[in-house]
């Protein structure tokens, strides 16, 4: 499609490659293309304030395509030419997504930009031999396909960074470290534990043990809906790591249903110390620190 195809024609006259031809065409017809695109749904729906705005955006996309065509790499979505319009394309796709369009629909709208520009190219080169026209049209079609790919890539990147942000927020929200007493820290776990979250929980708890020189770390799983073998494994790893650091880990909040699941699954929590509730775990830890809880009223003395 590129330089390999040229030599045949070389004998007649030195001619531009199809990609060069497309590049020159885009520069020549920049204004017309931008005007036509401004009436297409993608531009019309995003730039609602004024048509001039849509035309201006169209010009910058045409410029980018011209630059990519001139570089000869029409099939490469990493072409330097696309860099300048990536942000603008991202804004456009984000606007379409916000108005409820699916990714496939946005992709279709980008595809709709192809026909006007291809028609313009055909109309623009009436005297060119059929073979060369076919090559140029093909190069332009490939280029428009690459534009579509770039748009999809930017859309995916947007979605991914949104997920990343939300994941981080979730991790922050979901792992508070509470200092219950001098030397006792607790992490109440809420929601489903997947591998990544368990990792963060483990690390956060272990850091807290060091920072606060806590001899007891309580993992309260009252808010964890289910305990499967993976979660059980993470619990046991946490307990083992805490022990290696010289502290003791207590798991509290194992609801009856979860206790049954654990037994049913045949999971062995081994040497893990468990207590029914957070209060029981705290009492256990306080006792270990030599600070027993006693009732203040006479006759009610005795520790839990």
């Amino acid at each position: 499609m590129r330089s390999e195809a040229v030599p045949e024609h070389d004998a007649a006259a030195p001619q531009a490659s199809p990609t060069d031809e497309v590049g020159a065409f885009l520069n020549r017809r920049r204004e017309q293309i931008a005007q036509r695109w401004a009436d297409e749904p993608l531009f019309r729906a995003v730039f609602t304030v004024s048509r001039d705005e849509a035309v201006e955006a169209g010009r910058s996309v045409v410029d980018a395509l011209a630059q990519v065509a001139a570089s000869g790499r029409v099939e490469d979505s990493d072409s330097a030419g696309f860099t300048v319009v990536r942000e603008q394309l991202a804004r456009m796709t984000a606007a379409r997504s916000r108005s409820g369009m699916s990714t496939a629909q946005v992709s279709g709208e980008v595809d709709a930009l192809r026909a006007p520009v291809v028609n313009l190219l055909v109309a623009d080169l009436p005297d060119v031999p059929a073979e060369r026209l076919r090559e140029s049209t093909e190069a332009l079609t490939v280029l428009m396909g690459t534009l579509r790919l770039v748009v999809m890539e930017t859309a995916l990147t947007e979605v991914q960074s949104l997920i990343d942000r939300q994941q981080m927020q979730l991790l922050e929200v979901a792992t508070p470290i509470i200092r219950l007493w001098d030397g006792i820290v607790a992490v109440p776990l809420i929601g489903t534990l997947d591998s990544a979250r368990s990792q963060v929980v483990m690390e956060t708890l272990l850091e807290a043990v060091v920072d606060q020189q806590a001899r007891y770390a309580i993992l309260d799983i009252t808010g964890v809906p289910t305990v499967d073998s993976l979660v059980a494994q993470h619990l046991m790893k946490t307990v083992a790591a805490v022990r290696l650091m010289g502290a003791e880990c207590v798991v509290s909040g194992i609801r009856p249903a979860i206790a049954q699941t654990i037994v049913h699954l045949g999971l062995d929590l081994g040497t893990v110390i468990t207590r029914a509730g957070l209060a029981d775990a705290l009492a256990y830890a306080l006792h270990g620190l030599g600070a027993d809880i006693v009732h203040a009223t006479p006759g009610g003395a005795g520790h839990r």
Binding site: V210, A241, V242, L244, M245, G246
Partner: peptide, 15 residues
């Protein structure tokens, strides 16, 4: 008695 093992070291040993 082994004292002061770092969290990252403890996690790695368990793994």
């Amino acid at each position: 008695v082994v004292a002061g093992m770092r969290p990252a070291v403890a996690l790695t040993l368990v793994e």
